[in-house]
Design a binder for these strands. Sequence first.
DNA 1: CTTGGAAAGTCAACAAGGCTGACATAAAGT
DNA 2: ACTTTATGTCAGCCTTGTTGACTTTCCAAG
Lengths: 172, 172
Amino acid sequence: MAERGAAQSSASSGESLLFLTDEQLRRGIEAMFFAYRGFTADPDRILENHAYGRAHHRAIHFINRSPGTTVNNLLAILGVTKQSLNRVLRTLVEDGLVESRVGTRDKRERHLYLTDQGISLERELSEAQRTRMRAAYRAAGPDAVAGFRTVLEQMMDPELRHHYFSNTEGGA
Amino acid sequence: MAERGAAQSSASSGESLLFLTDEQLRRGIEAMFFAYRGFTADPDRILENHAYGRAHHRAIHFINRSPGTTVNNLLAILGVTKQSLNRVLRTLVEDGLVESRVGTRDKRERHLYLTDQGISLERELSEAQRTRMRAAYRAAGPDAVAGFRTVLEQMMDPELRHHYFSNTEGGA
DNA sequence: CTTGGAAAGTCAACAAGGCTGACATAAAGT
DNA sequence: ACTTTATGTCAGCCTTGTTGACTTTCCAAG
């Protein structure tokens, strides 16, 4: 309430701060809701044909991003229980989309890799998602894209943010 | 592949188009993933204490946004089956958070309203969500926020987009 | 006035994907 | 030798989505 008052009385440090009204925030909240629906719609349609779900997509995405990643690593990124992740990984390994290799330095660890078949599905999924993203980026323009990314980064949990930034540089 | 090539060879119409590379798109995809996690984290924590889930939150949000909305309207916005929505609405009505009034013009329709108790929970949930949003907006600045909203609007399904824009003007 | 169809509600059954708890195994670390 | 870590697995539970079948209510067109 105190904050709301501060946001709605326009100039406090020289800026207008009108973009911080409750109404503007509500618009942002709904934008996130509807946009996320669009964001997942295309992959979801593809996954149906393969008898997989969003959980499989997430695993495939992050294994593709970081080939050789361990199960524990994936658990930290996805924020689910090992039982939940294991169910997904088991089907992906059984179906020959993911290969699980015992670690060389530490033999307790399993390093995960996409097989050719896994890479093929990953490409199908990510190209559908990129196509929509590309259209949105193109329509919005580079400045809007920069702002989009900035706000999303600020919205992440600080503890989770490093999973996002960890892949800024690094391999491939 | 043809598109990827076009995006990566820099200048085509005068702009750089570097923001359309596959790598930039992948970053955007992951930003959406991690940010959405943050976006839902605070309400999820609150909902646990009330034995409700994200589905209840969504219903409460949109009933609060458009008091008196019908079940069919809500179905179109949320994109779930009536059986799924009904289960959620039933518990909310039973618990006294939502009131379902038979329509006056068309008595088949049910018009949905939040009770005082419902308004109270809505406020608790949305204030948690707005607090995070406000912090992100403030840190990013007004230009970034404008870009954020522009990209999200472009990412929505065209058929769903009007649900987002329908509440631009109108009541309250 | 009758009838077709829309709106809403309900029951049953099922699946995906979360969760907890308990337990097993192998390997690494102390 | 003992403890901790990494992984896997079994069993059972919950939420939230699905389909299909069926009923009641009621508007509106014939």
